[in-house]
Amino acid sequence: MGIHSVVNACTHLQNATRARLGLTSVPNTKYNLLLMTAMQKAGLIASVTRGGPLPPAPNDASEPVTSANVATRRLWLGLKYWNNEPVLRTVKPVSKPSRLVTVDLKTLGRVTRGFPVGSLKGLNLGETMFLTTDRGVMESREALKRKIGGLVLCRVQ
C-alpha cells in the first residue's frame, strides 16, 4: 500500500488550514481514510465525510459507494479553529514514498517523550505523530500505550 496519497493529503491539509478553509477534500483512498479518521479521533479534524466532487449537504446521508461512482468519491473534511487560530497548524509528512521511516518501540518511546532519535526530532508541546501499524493508523501515544511500533506517516502540531 503506497503512501503517496497520504503525503499529498498532508500537504493539502496544511495548505487548506493556512487558507482558513472550513471544508476541504482529499482523494478517497483507504490510507487517507484511516489517517483522517485517526486525526478526527485525536480531535484535530471536525468531521470526515465521504462525498462526491461537490461538498455533501449537511444532513445528507452519504451516498453508497458503487463501482460506478467510486472514482469520483472524495473525503470531505471539516477543519477546526479555536480562538481564531487553526487547531491543525502544521502537518508535516515524515515518510515519503522514496524513504519510509519506521520506529521501533524504544525509539517511539524516546521520541514521544520529547528526545530526538536519529533524524526524528522529539515531539514538542502540543505536537503529535501518526503511525501506521499492523493494528491500523493511530497516534504515537496510543501506539506507545499498545507497545507497538510502525511506519511514521506525519507529525502534526
Binding site: G43, W82, V87, L125
Partner: peptide, 11 residues
C-alpha cells in the same frame, strides 16, 4: 503555546 488552549481546541 498554552497547553490548556491546545487541549480545548482538540476537545
Amino acid at each position: 503555546p498554552d497547553p490548556e488552549e491546545i487541549a480545548k481546541g482538540r476537545g
